[in-house]
Simulated assay, not measured.
Amino acid sequence: MTSPVFEHPALTSAAVRLASLRTAAGRIGAPDPVAALRHLDCSPSSISASASAVDAGASLVTSASTEFRGGVEHGESGGSAETFGIWADTVDGQYTAAARAAAATAELGVRIAARLDELAISASAEVCALASAAEDAVSAVLADDRSPEVVSAVSAACTSVVRVIQQGVASLSSLLAELEPLTAPAVQLS
């Protein structure tokens, strides 16, 4: 059987370390600890790359805003109509709002990537420790020992792995509040 591949390398390593526990779990009908890891799989590097792209876009919008403002000031000093100045101020405000929103989105992306990375690494370490603690019971189950003590130890280890993953996923709910503002357009163009 091939080793499962995850987006996050720590989870791939954990899956390898949980392989025997997974096999033992399958033999006794306990929850699959490797399948539980899928709920935390993520790619912080992809999120960071996206955040960098958004940040670069924010810089471009800021630069365009500066150029636009320069053109507006030149247009206003040339005796242009007052209406142009009002329109220009509106557009300039939209540029500024878009640049701020893009910069805030990029900062949030970096924070989310860091939190997901931290969570995947810490959960991987924790579930590997659980698997290590159950190694003797896992070996016994794999040798066809179905005594209540070893079956219970394997089942408890699998349940603990699932609980660690559930707690990790639940801890991400705090990020949802930060994502909420991104569901509405940052700027309403006139």
Results as ranks from 00 to 15, higher is better:
31 P>N: 12
37 L>R: 11
186 A>P: 10
187 V>R: 04
130 L>C: 04
167 Q>G: 11
98 A>V: 02
6 F>G: 00
118 E>N: 12
101 A>D: 03
18 L>M: 04
52 S>M: 12
90 T>A: 10
178 E>D: 15
154 V>C: 07
52 S>R: 09
9 P>K: 03
74 H>Q: 07
134 A>Y: 04
10 A>Y: 01
119 L>A: 02
142 L>W: 03
110 V>I: 08
172 L>W: 01
17 R>G: 01
76 E>H: 06
138 V>T: 08
25 A>R: 01
155 S>R: 08
34 V>M: 14
121 I>Q: 12
100 R>T: 11
50 S>E: 14
4 P>Y: 04
188 Q>I: 13
188 Q>T: 13
189 L>H: 06
79 G>A: 09
17 R>D: 13
161 V>T: 07
130 L>H: 04
155 S>H: 08
188 Q>C: 11
16 V>R: 13
20 S>M: 03
183 T>I: 07
19 A>W: 00
181 P>K: 07
139 S>H: 07
67 E>L: 09
28 I>H: 02
153 A>H: 01
59 S>Q: 14
53 A>M: 13
67 E>G: 11
152 S>A: 14
5 V>N: 08
137 A>Q: 04
16 V>W: 02
164 V>S: 02
115 R>M: 07
102 A>E: 03
121 I>A: 10
120 A>P: 01
33 P>R: 06
95 Y>I: 02
102 A>Q: 03
116 L>F: 08
139 S>R: 09
115 R>A: 07
6 F>L: 06
92 D>V: 06
119 L>W: 00
128 C>W: 05
120 A>N: 03
175 L>P: 01
182 L>H: 13
46 S>F: 11
42 C>P: 11
168 G>S: 14
139 S>F: 02
23 T>S: 12
73 E>F: 10
5 V>Q: 14
31 P>V: 11
157 A>S: 15
129 A>I: 03
80 S>K: 05
175 L>M: 15
185 P>L: 11
28 I>D: 03
190 S>H: 12
82 E>S: 14
93 G>H: 06
62 T>N: 13
82 E>F: 05
54 V>C: 06
6 F>V: 02
92 D>N: 14
99 A>L: 05
13 S>K: 07
180 E>G: 08
66 T>E: 12
184 A>P: 02
60 L>H: 11
152 S>V: 02
3 S>D: 15
62 T>C: 11
72 V>L: 09
174 S>N: 06
57 G>K: 08
129 A>S: 09
25 A>K: 00
104 A>S: 15
56 A>M: 08
13 S>N: 11
